[in-house]
Design a protein around this nucleic acid. Structure first.
Length: 429
RNA sequence: GCGGUCGUGGCGAAGUGGUAAACGCACCGGAUUGUGGCUCCGGCAUACGUGGGUUCGAUCCCCACCGGUCGCCCCA
């Protein structure tokens, strides 16, 4: 019996979950500033959505999808990325008819890719992503990149590198593709096995190959930038100008092609340059995909977006030693001694919580001393002590743990008193 | 799919071809009959990944498998 989490998956335990909450809320806040709205799409889609959307020749579709057949014989796939799903939802729900264009969406979602796990690569991974549909303005490209960079900046990351490139429009791509095939065909036998396939399937990705990166033909290969037509070149220039205007540093890398078929024009990646980050440096990647919505059966609609790996974001924070502020302190811990007190304690805890006070108690039948230890472990600000004496007098002892001061409070006034004490504490902070 | 490396209690971590498998942390109890964080004392646990093989005997040697981890391809 294998009762372990499947390979490439992890449990996020409370200690880490707090970090996730922090990061997610910070990012949501930024999305709000940028006026992006959340969208939640299904965890799985008809396999065809990804085949058509992401592209049959991509690694994702060819070897990384979690595809299964349901009881009705339909082929379904756990989403390997977010853009195709969002585009599908955009079409299906006719968001192109929304008067508020462009449609600016963000999501937090688990993605699934059947790969060998390693540092920064899981089979189930968490992504934050953004998609803007309905605008072909280069200012939107810049806005989306700005949003991504803002997330990292506001979380305190410094060692980042933004790499951008343009893949051009269809005409530019077609011409470039033809030139690439012409250029590499004479060297076909010298290229790696993968690249030989790429030559016919997706020659653009030969530029991305690491095995053949030293091949002389690589250096002389025609760059997409040389094949950008006037419109594409102009578009790329505008994106760069906007980035410069916003003070966002970038590097143009003509070999950045991105793995998915749907990209055109702007492509970008954000990498970490922090020490000890691991072999994988890409934190986020994205680009423009003006043909995708149409490919999925919608009206011709320009789009752009990115996916940001949250595991990698957390890794980067760790690599740069960014502490995540976490408020672990508990307001009150109730210590009860004796059977009668225990009964009253259960009721009291209920009442305090009803009055908005954070409180916990012991459920292990521990002795008083051990209950105090629990209170400490929970970093309780106040310990409420209830024993026979207190019950007799209908009071409770309230001890402030930091100072050790202890006062008697009538049971009937406990909730009110604690509200005041905790309120005061917050104001003083 | 391929390669490196690892696999001892809740966690961390020693160790040996031979009858009780260190130690540290954590946890529980006591010193302190109702008051914590320090100290001291005591207690605790189905621990040698699984299956074969070598051997009089394997946690330790060999093989296979499984799993973790890191890396390759590619990506978040």
């Amino acid at each position: 019996m294998n009762m372990k989490a499947p390979r490439g998956t992890v449990d996020i335990l409370p200690k880490d979950a707090r970090k996730w909450q922090f990061v997610e809320s910070k990012i949501k806040n930024i999305c709000d500033k940028f006026n992006f709205e959340e969208i939640r799409t299904p965890l799985f889609e008809h396999t065809e959505v990804f085949q058509r959307g992401v592209g049959d020749s991509t690694d994702i579709v060819q070897k990384e999808m979690y595809t299964f057949e349901d009881r009705g014989g339909r082929s379904l796939t756990l989403r390997p990325e977010g853009t195709a799903s969002v585009a599908r939802a955009f079409v299906e729900n006719k968001l192109f008819g929304d008067p508020n264009q462009p449609v600016k969406l963000y999501y937090f979602a688990q993605m699934f890719r059947y790969e060998r796990p390693q540092k920064g690569r899981m089979r189930q991974l968490n992504q934050f992503g953004v998609e803007v549909l309905g605008s072909a303005s280069p200012a939107v490209d810049a806005e989306v990149i700005d949003l991504a960079m803002s997330c990292y900046r506001e979380l305190g990351l410094k060692s980042l590198k933004l790499v951008i490139n343009s893949l051009g429009d269809n005409e530019s791509r077609t011409n470039h593709r033809r030139a690439l095939v012409e250029h590499f065909t004479p060297h076909k036998d010298e290229l790696c096995k993968d690249c030989q396939t790429r030559l016919s399937q997706n020659p653009l990705r030969i530029l991305d190959c690491k095995t053949d990166s030293d091949h002389p033909a690589m250096k002389t290969a025609p760059s997409i930038l040389e094949f950008l037509n006037e419109e594409s070149k102009n578009y790329f220039d505008q994106v760069k100008d906007y980035l410069t205007a916003m003070g966002i540093d970038y590097i143009v890398d003509k070999n950045l092609v991105r793995g998915l078929d749907y990209y055109n024009h702007t492509a970008f990646e954000i990498m970490s340059e922090a020490e000890g980050f691991g072999a994988i440096t890409t934190l986020a990647g994205g680009g423009r995909y003006n043909g995708l919505v149409e490919e999925l059966g919608g009206p011709a609609t320009p789009g752009i977006g990115f996916g940001m790996g949250l595991e990698r974001l957390l890794m980067a924070l760790e690599a740069e030693k960014k502490e995540i502020p976490i408020d672990e302190a508990l307001d009150c811990f109730l210590v009860a001694v004796g059977d009668e007190a225990e009964k009253e304690a259960v009721r009291l805890v209920h009442e305090l919580r009803k009055n908005g006070i954070q409180v916990d108690k012991d459920y292990q039948g521990r002795k008083m001393k051990a209950q105090f230890k629990s209170a400490d472990r929970n970093k309780a600000k106040y310990v409420l002590i209830l024993g026979e004496d207190e019950l007799q007098k209908q009071i409770i002892n309230v001890k402030e743990m930091q100072t050790g001061e202890q006062v008697e409070i009538p049971l009937s006034q406990l909730a009110m008193t604690m509200q005041e004490k905790l309120q005061g504490g917050i104001e003083n902070e």
